[in-house]
Design a protein around this nucleic acid. Structure first.
Lengths: 237, 237
DNA sequence: TGCACAAAAATCGTATGCAATCTTTTTCGA
DNA sequence: TCGAAAAAGATTGCATACGATTTTTGTGCA
């Protein structure tokens, strides 16, 4: 896969830090699976794509490397991360630890305006599930992650919010690699249940529902080691 | 070799080593309070200090900015972070959420070799507490943080370990700014208790002790807003 | 043909230069 | 003397250049 074909042009980046805009654009592409795990992201190519020098492209790649979405090898370059089954387990172990707490915190701070935002988010999820085709499926995965990020923003802790951004992004990589059926519809109903519990401010219930939800997502993974990813990575595909 | 060395040489030694070495050195200085919050870290100064170009210095500062230890302002430069009371609360809220879980996980994986390492760590803490003077006090703060990092490494989750790296580092900044008495001796006895519970593999007890420990650290802070830090920051001092 | 080895190309790590922006100092008028 | 505007200086943002390292291509020999 060639990144030139996969990345859409940078969103309006004239105002703020350009490296950050490039990072966001690349992260979206990785989370949306338009950039497959193992894809090479050379500084020069990223730079010309976004019409900046290698200096700026390099800064963007460094940021993604910190988030664990990109792995860099000295004198070799940057590649979209190819998480091992062990890394996948750690991602979900981290989410099991953090997200129930975030859900509890969100329960105590949620406003009616937030509930409206949650409903809108659920509607969007539903729309993508109803549609068919790979594009809708990508959007659906992204929307599912956005639900968790919305919850994290409602919880009101900027540090935990950033941790969750990293974990959600890495989760979508993991699902891309090890996802089996896609329990999307099931996940959607679970999200709906969480919003309901949030509305009634039942923090215990919200926390429990979230834990089960994460367990369900992880249960859908097939984390047995297989030759596929290693081979693909070895072939730099 | 201390904990931070272990973490970063294991995690990403493949990257540009020089920028990382500079980051580690600066982070140690910040955590040790040799660099006060608000101190300006100019690219040129850092570069000449470590005998590298601004390019490398800049990369190191960018890393610290990701960890929240340094705040960068466009066209103005990088400064040692000056966490607000709200940020301080968020740091400790995050630790309350994460560390009991880490302690539980560590409980299930701890080996007798780990216990030996914990005992050595406790001894070192004790030595610095016995000594007097600002140097010993700095080392004591660092050793106290290293205890929590050692626990995180035993827990065996690289992602959570990195989160803890960040939280411990930011905590020491917070303590530098808002710490009152320094409950160090008290903290030391609590650490000892945690190791004891760890040795008997009582995960419930370990988790509870850790939660209380964090509460005690936070209770020692004086998070009332005061003119001091804001003024100092305004004066760029 | 197959393989080892060397040349060439591509890519990265880093230093340096220049323009833009911010900060400090100087100057000048009221 | 004080304050404001302008000049000088310092610092950052970014692009580019060059050596070092890796990857690919090409070539000769068995």
């Amino acid at each position: 896969m060639n990144i030139t074909d996969q990345v859409y042009s940078a969103a309006d980046s004239a105002n703020q830090d350009r490296a950050q805009a490039i990072r966001d654009s690349l992260r979206d592409a990785i989370v949306d699976r338009r950039l497959a795990p193992g894809t090479k992201l050379s500084e020069g190519e990223v730079g010309t794509l976004f019409d900046v020098s290698r200096t700026v492209a390099r800064a963007a790649l460094q940021m993604l490397s910190f988030e664990g979405l990109v792995r860099t090898e000295r004198n070799r370059g940057a590649f979209v991360a190819n998480p091992s089954p062990e890394e996948a387990r750690q991602v979900f172990a981290s989410r099991r630890l953090i997200e129930p707490g975030i859900a509890t915190a969100a329960c105590e701070r949620v406003t009616s305006a937030d509930i409206v935002a949650f409903r809108a988010q659920l509607d969007e999820e539903g729309r993508f599930i109803a549609e068919r085709g790979p594009t809708a499926r990508r959007s659906e995965i992204k929307a599912s992650g956005d639900f968790h990020l919305l919850l994290a923003s409602v919880a009101g802790n900027a540090i935990l919010q950033r941790f969750m951004e990293e974990l959600v992004a890495r989760s979508s990589l993991v699902i891309a690699l090890y996802g089996r059926s896609g329990v999307s519809a099931c996940g959607h109903t679970e999200h709906t249940g969480i919003v309901g519990a949030l509305e009634s401010r039942d923090s215990g219930l919200v926390s429990r529902l979230m834990l089960h939800h994460i367990d369900h997502i992880e249960a859908d993974l097939d984390l047995r080691v297989r030759a596929g990813p290693a081979l693909r990575e070895a072939l730099n595909f």
